[in-house]
Simulated assay, not measured.
Amino acid sequence: MSRTNELRMITRVAQMYHLEGLKQSDISEVLRISQASVSRLLKRAEAEGIVRVSIVAPSGTYPDLESAIREKFGISEVIVADCREDNDDAVFSAIGVAAAHLLEQTLEDGDVIGVSSWSATLQQMLDNIHPIKRVRAERVIQLLGGIGVPSAQIHATQLTTRLAHLINGEPQLLPAPCVTGSPESKRILVSDPHVKATVDQFKRVTTAFVGIGAMAPSQNLIYSGNTFTQAELEELARRGAVGDICLRFYTADGEPLAGEIYERVVGMTLEELQAVPRVIGTAGGKRKTASIAGALRGKLIDVLITDRFTAERLSELT
């Protein structure tokens, strides 16, 4: 067959499949060629540039930004939420809506969901989840201690219990403060049967939703008393800390900062977090750009949900 006739046949097959909507079996019958030949010719149509695929991104979606961050940091998935303003309220709301949609679409029967207690974006996620009826999670595990002043404690435990109710799972609370006075008091605390029962379940988490913290603690943590002193935070910064996940601080390269402070936290460690099959990090805003980048470089998360302004800053990092 001459080159021109070969190209004509490829073009005809592509036309029938892509424009006329015929199935490969129908094309095979009409043209009297095998279905295997139809499949081969369709692949040739793309290779020859006869068929070209273009994606027109709808307004409010950012596939190029998502792709840029995936390639820069080697992360499996990035979700960039549409956001009109670069301020905390708008950013947290947009990320929360996107996180709720992801959970609703990807939750599977028997999932064990871990959730950090003090994240504003995860609180927004909770406020945007519709009750899920199609599947039933096994349980929702609180990954970071939530005991503090009474009103703050209610905030932390409600996040876990409400999420469990929405996804048909059992809540498993972590009845402890997230920061203790010393490593010794932490070791005593985690030997309590109720605390130990939850900590022992960390290894069963199939998906973890975690906030990514900046060096300056959130207002929720400050109000609850579950944070470190300014002097301790300054010492962490001198040692290279850029942010935290579950109050476990790490460097710009995502390396955990071991030491006395690390050993005072009651919650999932970064080593335990990395053993979770899917870790979804939710964060955005100017002050969190460095902490998000550190989490990405250290492969501490598998999925990032952020806003478009933060995504642009991340894509421009060298």
Rank of each mutant, 00 (worst) to 15 (best):
M1E: 06
S2P: 10
S2R: 11
E6L: 06
I10M: 15
L19A: 03
Q24W: 10
S28M: 02
S28R: 01
V30P: 02
V30R: 05
V30W: 08
L31D: 01
A36H: 07
S37V: 07
S37D: 12
V38D: 08
S39W: 08
L41V: 07
E46S: 13
G49E: 08
R52P: 03
R52D: 13
A57P: 13
G60Y: 04
Y62W: 14
P63I: 14
P63Q: 03
E66R: 09
E66G: 12
I69S: 08
E77Y: 07
E77K: 09
D88P: 05
F92S: 00
F92H: 03
V97E: 10
A98Y: 01
L102M: 14
L103V: 14
Q105I: 10
E108K: 14
E108M: 14
D111M: 13
V112N: 10
G114R: 01
V115L: 09
S117M: 01
Q123S: 08
Q124N: 11
L126M: 09
N128E: 01
P131C: 00
K133H: 15
V135K: 12
A137M: 15
R139I: 08
I141F: 05
Q142K: 02
L143V: 11
L144K: 06
S151L: 15
S151Q: 15
I154Y: 05
T160F: 04
R162L: 12
H165W: 15
I167L: 02
N168S: 15
E170N: 07
E170W: 14
E170R: 15
P171Y: 03
P171F: 11
Q172P: 13
P175R: 01
P175H: 06
A176D: 10
T180K: 15
T180E: 12
E184T: 14
I188F: 12
L189F: 12
L189I: 12
V190C: 07
P193Y: 11
H194A: 12
V195R: 05
K196C: 07
K196W: 09
A197P: 03
A197K: 12
Q201H: 03
Q201S: 08
K203F: 10
R204I: 00
A208I: 04
A216Q: 13
L221T: 00
N226Q: 03
Q230K: 03
A231T: 06
A237S: 05
V242Q: 00
I245Y: 00
C246P: 07
C246E: 10
L247P: 01
T251S: 05
T251A: 06
A252E: 15
D253G: 13
G259V: 12
E263S: 12
T282P: 10
G284W: 08
G284H: 12
S291H: 09
A295I: 11
A311K: 08
